[in-house]
Simulated assay, not measured.
Amino acid sequence: MSVSLDLEEQSRRLLTEARTHRPQERERLENQVVEDHLVLARRLARRYRGRGVADDDLEQVARLGLLQAVRRFDVDQGPFIAFAVPTILGELRRYFRDHAWVVRPGRRIQEVQAAATRARDDLRSELAREPTTAEVAVAIGRPVTEVSEADTVSGAYAPRSLDAPTPGGDLSLAQSWGQEDPNLALAEDLATVGPAIRALDERDRHLLRLRFGEDRKQKDIGDELGISQMQVSRRLTAVLARLRDAVDDTPIAS
């Protein structure tokens, strides 16, 4: 990112002069340097667009980083721009790390993601192209699998809405996920028949429990109850008919 030599010289002169003045005059000179580099802050903030943070908020964070760079710059350490750019980018990254997560991943993944972001910025400038995941992994000394895992959490800054349409389709994400639970109908039936079963006497409930709860054969049930298999069948038929009538008479909630 280029900055004119005149602006660099002016910034160094203003900041050198600011160190020798009282607080009020020093603040005025530092603010002038900040104003001179607002375009720089805006350009760096734009790198982080589309991650779930409003553009105005990004620019405010970048301006804060610029102000910190102005106040911490040592005129004997080299060009101001070389100090300001990493300071502003660092402030933007810290903001995302500490405030912008919608779903916060573990600390290890956050650290790898932050390191990968810094490495990509450096490699992008060095290579004049988008670096590969393998190149980023080498740059930060972490396995490719960790970098890939960290890349997947970038969506936690701004996850897609469940109401968003699916690519090439008319369904929303929510409509395209999952399926109807086949047990829902069973749950509804149980909720409906439950009161009718509780209204039966203990003798009939015991009969239902043996047949349907324990899945016993009618002959086994007859042996336990001391009645014939035919009597078991007739009693079951009568009990089920009463339950059916009770369910049919149950009013439907509106």
Rank of each mutant, 00 (worst) to 15 (best):
E126G: 00
A69K: 00
A150T: 02
R142V: 03
L127Q: 08
S148D: 15
Y48N: 13
R120M: 13
T133A: 06
I109H: 01
T145W: 01
E149R: 13
A156F: 09
L64M: 09
A69T: 09
I140V: 13
R47T: 08
A158V: 04
R160L: 14
G90Y: 05
A119F: 07
Q77D: 14
L67R: 09
R108L: 10
Y48M: 15
Q60P: 07
L123K: 00
E91S: 15
A158P: 01
V144G: 05
R142A: 01
A137T: 08
Y157N: 07
R47W: 05
A150G: 09
R142W: 00
R118E: 13
G90M: 11
V153C: 05
A116W: 03
I109N: 00
D163K: 09
P105L: 10
R49F: 11
R107N: 08
S161F: 04
L66R: 07
E111L: 06
A139V: 09
R108D: 14
R124P: 06
A119G: 03
I81T: 14
R63Y: 06
R93P: 07
G65T: 01
P105S: 05
S161G: 05
A54C: 11
R47N: 15
V75K: 01
W101C: 06
V144C: 01
A156P: 01
F80V: 02
G65N: 03
H99W: 15
V61C: 04
E111W: 02
A156T: 03
A137N: 04
S148L: 09
D98E: 11
L89M: 14
G65K: 00
A139E: 11
Q77T: 15
R124W: 12
A156V: 05
G141V: 02
R46W: 05
A82P: 08
I140G: 06
V75T: 11
R160M: 07
E149Q: 03
A100H: 03
R63K: 04
E59S: 14
R142P: 04
V147P: 03
I140R: 12
G90W: 10
I109D: 10
E149D: 11
E146M: 10
R72T: 12
D163Q: 14
L66H: 11
A150R: 03
R49E: 14
G141K: 10
D163V: 05
L127G: 08
Q113S: 09
V53R: 01
G106I: 09
R71M: 13
R93L: 13
R129T: 05
I88V: 14
H99T: 13
L67T: 14
I140H: 11
V102H: 10
R118K: 10
P159S: 14
Q60Y: 13
R93N: 13
F80W: 06
E126R: 05
R47A: 00
V85W: 01
V102I: 12
D74F: 02
G141C: 15
I81M: 07
D163I: 03
V103T: 01
A84V: 06
D121V: 08
W101D: 08
